[in-house]
């Protein structure tokens, strides 16, 4: 190894230490499944690959003679703390999903998932499928939102029974919202999407997970069709393993 023993010191270990810890954290979140609460599934293999390679490079730096360059102690401490402490603290403190604090700040019902709507207009009262009594369709909020993609689909689904899972959020009198977080890339961009449900649910607390079975109806809001549920049956539910929808 180049230089005297002192150069192979803690100060020269910053790079392998940082790379090793970051790599280990990435491998840990993948192995424990915590990554499901953090990133869209498309990113998971890349995080695993990057984690593995970072650990390999960290080990290689330890054993490659002449690769380590010691840093001044002050800089070592400063950068080491900055690069490792926030990562480890957030790994420990991050919950599996956002609390009502963030969901309400991001706006329940302020946005909708990316669903294409046609510009066709349909005369009111033209639904012909009211009162269908099929088995409830197991779906999710984006699935119900997709019913407005075309007029034909909307008319077909009007009056259908659906069953879905979400978190309870109170709304205006006579209605409440069932909410999921829609993830585009990562938790940081997850936006609440909601479906209005007719009724009052005094027995539930805000953020409680509920399973709702109800009949789909449609109404116009801001010039666009919007689905909502009527005649709901509500059951308490366990939180799903993956709190997001995609």
């Amino acid at each position: 190894m180049g230089g005297d023993v002192k150069t192979f010191s803690m100060q020269a270990m910053l790079a392998p230490l940082v790379l090793g810890i970051w790599g280990a954290v990435m491998l840990d979140v993948v192995a424990t499944g915590k990554i499901n609460t953090l990133l869209h599934p498309a990113f998971h293999p890349w995080v695993a690959l990057t984690g593995g390679l970072l650990v390999i490079i960290a080990v290689a730096l330890l054993f490659a003679p002449g690769a380590l360059h010691p840093e001044p102690l002050r800089a070592w401490l400063g950068r080491g703390v900055l690069l490792m402490v926030p990562l480890l603290v957030s790994l420990y403190a991050a919950p599996s999903t956002f609390s009502a604090y963030t969901v309400l700040n991001r706006g329940v019902n302020a946005s909708s998932p990316p669903v294409a709507q046609t510009n066709e207009t349909v005369p009111p009262g033209s639904s012909t499928t009211a009162g269908k009594t099929d088995q409830p369709l197991q779906t999710d909020i984006p699935g119900v939102m997709s019913f407005i993609e075309t007029d034909q689909k909307r008319l077909e689904m009007d009056g259908k029974s659906v069953q879905l899972l979400g978190q309870y959020y109170p709304s205006k009198d006579g209605e409440y919202e069932i909410v999921r977080l829609y993830m585009y890339c990562c938790a940081a961009d997850a936006s609440p999407i909601s479906l209005s449900v007719e009724g009052d649910l005094a027995s539930e607390k805000q953020e409680d997970w509920i399973q709702v079975t109800g009949t789909v109806r449609f109404r116009q809001r801001l010039g666009q069709w919007e689905p909502y549920l009527v005649s709901p049956e509500v059951l308490k539910a366990d939180p799903p393993a993956d709190p997001y929808v995609y």
Binding site: V25, L38, S90, A94, A187
Partner: peptide, 14 residues
């Protein structure tokens, strides 16, 4: 604080 930790971790890992 906890929500910010979740957001932070997701941004850096992405």
């Amino acid at each position: 604080f906890h929500d910010a930790c979740l957001s932070f971790l997701s941004i850096v890992l992405e």
